[in-house]
Design a protein around this nucleic acid. Structure first.
Lengths: 224, 224
DNA sequence: ACCTGAACACCGTTCAAGT
DNA sequence: ACCTGAACACCGTTCAAGT
C-alpha cells in the first residue's frame, strides 16, 4: 500500500553486460552478438538491456573501450622526460606499440569496433592524449606529434585488422601457382602465420621508429 | 509445347549486381546494404540475387575486389629491375602505397571488407603476389619480402580503416580539456582532418621506407 | 527502477512455383 | 535458366504492463 518493498538487487549492471558481451565476442565473434543471445547469456530477456544501454552499438563500444583501457601508458608519464623534455620518446613508443598490439591480439574480434576511432570512448581518448602529450614534451612540434599519433594508430590497428594470418583462407587450392607465382607458401600453418605477423610487426615498427628518428635528428640539426 | 521460346535477356548479371552494390555502399555505407534494398535498386525481388551469388557476403567481396583491382601495380613490373634485380624497390613501394591509398579513400565504406584479407579475392591476391615478387627480385630475402608485404598492408589498410578524420566525433563537448589536456584541437573541421590523415600517411610512409632502406643497406654490408 | 512479453519493421536465405 | 512470392528463423528496438 504505502510503498513497495525496496526493489531487490537488479539482475543487470553495465559492467556485467559488458563482461558478458566481451566474452561472447571473444568466443564467437562480432556477428554472433545479438541482443537476444547476449540477454540469454545473462539470464534475462532481450529488451532488459535497454535499461542500461541506449543501443547495442553502445555495448560494443564499451567492450572496445575496456580493451583500450588495458593498454599500458605508463611509459609516457612525465618522469621519463627530463627538464629539457627529450628523453626516450623512441623507446616509449616502442613499448607502447607492443602493449597496444598485445591487447588487440588478446581480443581480435572486437578490433573492427576499435578501428572506428576513439569517438567518445574515454580510454581511446586517454590513449590519443597520452601519445600526443609525450611527443610534444619530447620536442616534436605539435603538428608532427599529431601525425605520429595518427600513423602509429594506422600501423597498430592495421596489424590487428589486416592480419596476415587471418587474411588467407585455409585452403591450398585457392592459390593456384599458375595465377599467383609467388604465393606458393601463402597457405601455411596457422602457427607459421602468427610468426609472419609478429615478424612483420617488429620489422615495421623498427623501420617506422628508425625513420622517425632520422626526421627528428634532421629537425634538430636544422634548428641548431 | 515442344519448347519454350528462347529465354529473354536476363535482368541481372554479376557485374550489374556488383556495380549497384558498390554504388549503394559508397552512398549509404555497408550497413545500408540488404539483399532486399539492393534488389530493389536493380528492379528485382530479393531472392533473385541468389541466382548469381551464393551469399550476400560474396557480393561484398566482389565489390571489395573491384576496388583492389584499381590499384596500380605497373611499378612492380620486371623492366624496373635490372639484371642484378635491385633497382628502385623503394620508389616502387612508395608509388604503389599511394595508389593503394587513393583507391581506398575513393571507397572508404568498403574498407572493412577489404581488411578481412585477400581471402579468395583475385585482385587482392594478385596484389600480394606482385609485392612479394618485386621485393625478392630486388634482393630482399623471401622471409623479409613476406614481412614487407604484410607490414605495408598493415599501414595502408590501417590508414583507411583507422582514419583520424573519421575517428573523432563532430562534437566539441566530447573532448573536455579537463579530461584530455592535449586534445583541444581533436575536434576540428573535416577539411583539417583530411590534412592530418594525408600528412600522417606521408610521414609514416617515408619513415617506413627510410627504415627499411637502413635494413637493406645493413644486410648488403654484412654480405659484402 | 528494472524486467517482461508482445509487437513492429526489418534481416539473409530457402524453396516450390512459374516462365 | 532466371525470376517470383511465401515462408522460416532470425534481427534491433519500442512500449505498455507488471513489480
Amino acid at each position: 500500500m504505502w510503498r513497495m518493498a525496496r526493489p531487490r538487487k537488479p539482475l543487470l549492471s553495465r559492467t556485467r553486460i559488458v563482461e558478458a558481451a566481451g566474452a561472447l565476442v571473444d568466443a564467437e565473434g562480432l556477428e554472433a552478438v545479438s541482443t537476444r543471445r547476449l540477454a540469454a547469456a545473462l539470464g534475462v530477456s532481450g529488451p532488459s538491456l535497454y535499461n542500461h544501454f541506449r543501443t547495442k552499438d553502445e555495448i560494443l563500444e564499451a567492450v572496445a573501450d575496456a580493451v583500450s583501457a588495458r593498454v599500458d601508458l605508463s611509459m609516457f608519464e612525465a618522469p621519463a622526460y627530463g627538464a629539457e623534455g627529450v628523453r626516450d620518446w623512441r623507446g616509449a613508443l616502442h613499448a607502447w606499440a607492443h602493449s597496444y598490439r598485445d591487447a588487440l591480439s588478446d581480443h581480435p574480434n572486437i578490433v573492427p569496433v576499435l578501428a572506428r576511432g576513439p569517438g567518445r570512448r574515454p580510454a581511446g581518448l586517454r590513449l590519443a592524449d597520452a601519445v600526443f602529450g609525450a611527443m610534444t614534451a619530447a620536442g616534436w612540434p605539435p603538428a608532427q606529434a599529431t601525425r605520429i599519433g595518427a600513423l602509429m594508430r594506422y600501423f597498430i590497428l592495421g596489424s590487428a585488422v589486416a592480419s596476415f594470418a587471418r587474411g588467407f583462407v585455409d585452403d591450398e587450392a585457392a592459390y593456384d601457382p599458375a595465377d599467383y607465382p609467388h604465393l606458393g607458401q601463402a597457405h601455411l600453418l596457422a602457427e607459421r602465420q602468427r610468426e609472419v605477423d609478429q615478424g612483420a610487426f617488429e620489422t615495421g615498427l623498427t623501420a617506422l621508429l628508425d625513420g622517425l628518428a632520422l626526421q627528428y635528428e634532421a629537425a634538430r640539426r636544422e634548428s641548431a
